[in-house]
Simulated scan of single mutants.
Amino acid sequence: MSFIKLAQRFYSSAPAKTRVQLVAELRKLSNAPIIKARQALDESKGDFDAAVRWLEEDMRKSGAAKAEKIKDRATSQGLISISESGSGLVRASIIELNCESDFVSRTDEFTRLASEISEIAAQSMHQQQEASSHFVPLPVENLLQTAHKSGTVGTLITDLIARIGENISLRRAMLLSPLESAGSAFRVGSYLHQGRVGALDLISLRPLQSSLFKDDSFMGDLEKLERALAKQTAGFMTLGLDKRRSPEDELETVLYEQPFMMLGGEHASLPVRKVLDQWQEKWGLEELAVSDFARWEVGSD
């Protein structure tokens, strides 16, 4: 929410306040230094809403200047953030947002920024007919220029740079938007481990009867399976789906060959693929598979 909207909520119906109170509220809304809050009131001749707009514009300018000044500083810390579209479509995004220090990466402001960017990315559009994969890399430059209610993704980042004085960079972003597949239904499993490791698993299934999706018992079992698959992908150093990515890789880097520890119980020692086969048979499905996955870790390729 922008400073202006917050100001309207805080101030529009409030009685007249002293200059000291106005300065305090400006600082609360914007985290601006007291000198800047006083200057904003002076420049706006005591008009609170105008002072908020002045601070917002000043922060944008100072943020851009500060971002330019510190843009070469290394950003080796950060967070992975995942968002799933709430539009009824099977669509999700995963992004990596970097900063300079572990301390900043754990702040509420940085966490909210990463979450907001991943939500915007999840709504991104791409030319489905040109895609050859369920996962589509999103060009960072394009995402930075994506419009937002208070500017662009880029201005969201520079605004936070202005407030914390640390370099922040959007390293990468990817959209999960399944390719069409006749007869198959898609589901998404997602998991974040302390914001440092994130996984998205695209699960395809083909039930004999579509009414199965109205069965509460089936849906509860399916949601548990989705979560466990994503947690498994993140928890192991998963590189391949059904075979090694390279001859040097360990067998446990292959998802289907891993013991399904994250599902637990009697399945914990069985390979993931065997458990999926059993699950498919239990519910009478024609097909059950992990079609693709993405596993990201902060600082890794």
Rank of each mutant, 00 (worst) to 15 (best):
I4W: 00
L6E: 14
R9I: 08
R9W: 00
K17D: 05
K17R: 15
R19S: 11
A24D: 15
A24N: 14
R27K: 15
K28L: 05
S30F: 06
I35H: 05
A37I: 02
Q39S: 12
L41V: 11
L41Q: 09
L41E: 06
E43N: 13
S44A: 15
E57P: 00
K61R: 14
S62I: 01
K71E: 10
K71Q: 14
G78N: 09
I80G: 03
S85W: 05
G86C: 13
R91F: 10
A92C: 13
I94F: 07
I94Y: 05
C99W: 06
S101F: 01
V104H: 02
R112G: 06
A114P: 05
S115M: 11
A122L: 08
Q129V: 13
H134T: 08
F135T: 09
L138E: 07
L138T: 04
V140D: 07
N142D: 13
Q145I: 05
L160V: 11
L160N: 08
N167V: 03
S169A: 12
L170C: 08
L175V: 09
P178V: 03
G183K: 07
A185G: 10
G189E: 04
H193D: 14
G195L: 01
G198P: 09
G198D: 07
A199N: 07
S204H: 15
P207G: 08
P207V: 06
S210Y: 13
F213E: 14
D215E: 11
G220V: 07
K224E: 15
L225P: 07
Q232N: 04
G235Q: 05
G235H: 06
M237I: 10
L239T: 03
L239Q: 07
G240I: 01
G240P: 01
S246I: 07
P247A: 02
E250M: 06
L251C: 00
L255C: 01
Y256Q: 01
M261E: 10
M261F: 14
M262A: 14
L263W: 06
A268P: 00
A268Q: 10
L270T: 08
P271S: 08
K274E: 15
Q280P: 02
E281C: 09
L285N: 11
E286K: 03
E286I: 00
E287M: 12
A289L: 11
S291L: 10
A294C: 12
R295N: 00
